[in-house]
């Protein structure tokens, strides 16, 4: 292995060893806030997500299975991969898939991203939604792949109403004691590019369609 410059030598070029002012930095996050907790977060999320070209659909908790089955029948995927940490939710999704005639592959994500290149839809849970931007926030974890939202041509996400945060700022300022996930991703719309003459094209490397079932308890 080629060794580069030593850490000490490299750091020495960046100034004196101890910086008295280090870490003495307070910032005003409220400057950045565009959505407050008093707003109708559900309505704002639905509006923003739709504005980005995602397809959010509000469903009642008790009809989640039925609505999902309906949506899957519409989309008619032959195969799906699941990235769902909760066993109960996974069972519900499997039932919905079964009634829609969709085959599940690698339901516990044991094979990770490698298994996803040939499936038609990725079905995932999420950690949060963001009302301000219409974003979905996904974490990697046991049973959760970082590819399911990205590799298949369609992403179907399940978001619970109470998971919706007002503003991006709220995610970053929440005093999270828990360990940081290896991979977090904010999904804010379907994959897109405007590299060729500024013409917008969706579905570049990621999915061309993002469906969200927003569950209202």
């Amino acid at each position: 292995m080629v060794e580069g410059t030593s850490r000490e030598h490299f750091l020495a070029r960046l100034g004196p060893a101890t910086s008295p002012a280090a870490e003495d930095l307070s910032v005003d996050h409220e400057l950045l806030r565009l959505v407050g907790p008093e707003e109708d977060l559900l309505a704002r999320f639905m509006q923003e997500a739709a504005g980005l070209g995602m397809q959010p659909r509000l469903v009642q908790a008790e009809s989640l299975e039925l609505e999902m089955s309906r949506l899957l029948s519409e989309l008619a995927p032959v195969s799906a991969c699941l990235s769902l940490a909760d066993g109960q939710l996974r069972s519900l999704v499997l039932r919905a898939m079964h009634s829609a005639g969709c085959e599940a592959r690698d339901t516990t994500m044991s094979r990770g991203i490698a298994a996803q290149y040939d499936v038609d839809i990725g079905i995932t849970d999420v950690c949060h939604g963001v009302a301000e931007t219409g974003s979905l926030i996904l974490n990697s974890a046991a049973g959760r792949s970082r590819g399911a939202h990205l590799v298949p041509p369609i992403h179907l996400a399940i978001l619970y109403r109470e998971q919706i945060l007002p503003d991006l700022v709220d995610f970053f300022t929440a005093t999270g004691e828990s360990e940081l996930a290896t991979a977090q991703v904010f999904v804010t719309g379907p994959s897109k590019t405007a590299d060729i003459e500024g013409v917008l094209v969706t579905g570049v490397h990621g999915p061309r369609a993002v469906h969200i079932l927003v569950v209202d308890n």
Partner: peptide
């Protein structure tokens, strides 16, 4: 950069794959 509120994908990667992660 592009007049968007946020880029479509914002990835925050903290370390290599852990034993519990299915991929990475």
């Amino acid at each position: 950069g592009t007049g968007q509120d946020l880029t479509v994908y914002t990835n925050i990667i903290s370390g290599p794959r852990r034993s519990s992660d299915p991929d990475g």
